[in-house]
Simulated scan of single mutants.
Amino acid sequence: MTTTSKQKPGRARTGEPASVRTLERGLLILVALKEFGRAPLGQLARQVGLSSSTAYRLLETLRQQGFVEWDGPSGVYSVGLRAYQVGLAFTERSGLIHSAHPEMEALVGRLNETVNLAVLHAPEAIYVHQVEGRQLVRMFARQGDSAPLHASGVGKALLAWRPDADLLVGEEPFVSYTPHTQTTLAALVEELAQVRDLGYSIDDQERELGVRCVAVPVRDHTRAVVAALSVSAPTARLPTDQIPEVASQLVRAAAQISLRLGWR
């Protein structure tokens, strides 16, 4: 359920200061490090499309500020503690994870499968919290990992109630991950209408063969969909005839989370 996308350095725009371009490139390196976990200089430079010397200068600046760590013996870089501290500000600001965690724990207790919470960051959904199931074989995505909007349960739950959904998924044809992936806007729009009718979305082996996901929207005090709550499992443990019951439990859990966020 993880994705790794090629990062592109920001192109110079008319009148844009060099300092802005430098900042943009430094942020791209941080994103690449998040995806790799640990990586040497050359790999990071290729990923963001920079020369090794430029990437090194950016990494050294980030290291001095605590956003990046460097392991001398192995020669690899990793995300630093300061980046983690900055990331925590999201959860403290929104209260979303604090509101969702008890219901996610309860769902895992009942279903014994991994439960995820994701938010929209177009053109992707980002997993911001997770409670793992207790099965020996379980499906999970690391916190901070992304999922394609058109080929994930959380992505479709986040899109279905948005009037600008067609603007958020990118250009056609959409990336095809498996033979089950929807790759056209027309097919996606039709499925999003079904999601609204049912109240939940399904990723039926669209991102990864053998994996099924059910997701529902979470709303805040403005009634807007601010997150998606999902259960992921191997298809053998989540057959299609069990989807309505799993979705029903997710809907109830999402309603409780939404109430804590001020939804009425």
Rank of each mutant, 00 (worst) to 15 (best):
A247L: 08
G10A: 15
F36T: 03
A236Q: 12
G49W: 05
R46I: 00
G95R: 09
A122L: 03
R212Y: 09
V225L: 06
L250W: 02
L59W: 02
A141M: 13
E24W: 01
A106T: 04
D145P: 01
F174G: 03
A45C: 12
L261F: 05
E113I: 00
P234I: 12
V218R: 05
A118I: 02
S176N: 06
R138H: 14
G210Y: 06
H221V: 09
L238T: 05
T114Q: 08
V131H: 03
V246L: 06
S176R: 15
S146Q: 12
R134V: 11
I257S: 01
S74P: 01
H101Q: 14
P239E: 14
P9V: 07
A122P: 06
D203I: 00
G75M: 10
F90S: 11
V119R: 00
P163I: 14
R207S: 06
Q256F: 07
A186V: 12
A151C: 12
A122H: 03
L107D: 01
L33Y: 03
R138F: 09
V251C: 07
P173A: 09
S176C: 14
A106D: 13
L41K: 02
P9Q: 13
E92Q: 15
V86C: 11
A45L: 08
Y77C: 00
L188N: 04
T178Q: 11
R212V: 13
Y127W: 08
A233V: 04
T4K: 12
R219L: 07
T183P: 01
S176D: 06
V31P: 00
L27H: 04
V137L: 14
L185K: 12
R196S: 10
Y200T: 07
Q85L: 13
V175G: 04
V86L: 15
V20W: 11
F36L: 09
L50N: 02
V68H: 02
L168D: 10
L159G: 03
A254W: 05
A157P: 02
H98C: 01
T235M: 10
E113K: 12
D166Y: 08
L198P: 00
R237T: 10
R223E: 14
Y200L: 03
V226N: 01
L96K: 00
A39G: 04
V68A: 15
F174A: 07
L238I: 06
I126D: 00
V251L: 13
Q143I: 15
R212I: 08
L107M: 07
N116K: 05
R93E: 12
G210K: 03
A253K: 04
Y56V: 00
V195L: 03
L188W: 06
G95P: 07
E190A: 15
V211I: 15
V218I: 14
E69H: 07
P217D: 11
R57V: 04
L111H: 01
H101R: 15
G109N: 11
I243K: 03
G199M: 06
V251R: 13
A45S: 14
I126F: 05
A253I: 06
E113W: 04
A233F: 02
R260Q: 14
A122V: 08
